[in-house]
Simulated scan of single mutants.
Amino acid sequence: MPETAPAATRTSAPTDGPAEPTVALSAREAQVIGLIVQGLSNSEIATAAFLSINSVKTYIRTAYRKIGVTRRAQAVVWGMTHGFAPDQGNGARSD
């Protein structure tokens, strides 16, 4: 069976400056970052992902280390610029 690449490999968007290194997040780390970008709290992430609150905190900590941030707001900015932006109209009503 051939080896597969990491579950979620994100690269930075092309810029005029030097390229950012590739960041390889696990599938769960990517899911948690995506939910953080959507504005969910740790408790809401735990419920949505069927994880314990402590597992959520662990995934957040390891993801933050990999993407080079220390605060939630920085993770949101990173996620928005690296393809984790929430879908427009996701569940929104158009009355």
Rank of each mutant, 00 (worst) to 15 (best):
H82M: 05
N54R: 14
V77D: 11
H82K: 09
R61Y: 12
D16Y: 06
H82F: 07
L25G: 02
P6N: 06
H82P: 00
A46Y: 04
V32G: 01
G17D: 13
P18N: 12
M1D: 07
G91V: 02
G91M: 01
Q38K: 12
G68L: 03
A73V: 13
P6V: 09
L35D: 06
A48T: 09
E44R: 11
V76R: 06
T81G: 10
A30E: 08
G79V: 10
P21L: 08
R71I: 00
N90Q: 15
Q88F: 03
I60K: 14
P2E: 05
A19F: 02
V23Y: 07
T70A: 12
F84K: 01
R28H: 05
A63F: 07
G68H: 03
P6A: 08
R61P: 09
L40A: 07
G89R: 07
T4I: 08
T11M: 13
P18V: 15
Q88E: 12
S26T: 14
R71Q: 11
I67H: 01
P14M: 10
R72Q: 14
N42W: 04
K66D: 07
V37S: 03
P18F: 11
S12Q: 13
T47K: 13
N90P: 00
I53G: 04
T15S: 15
T58F: 07
P2S: 05
M80S: 04
P18W: 09
P2L: 07
P21G: 06
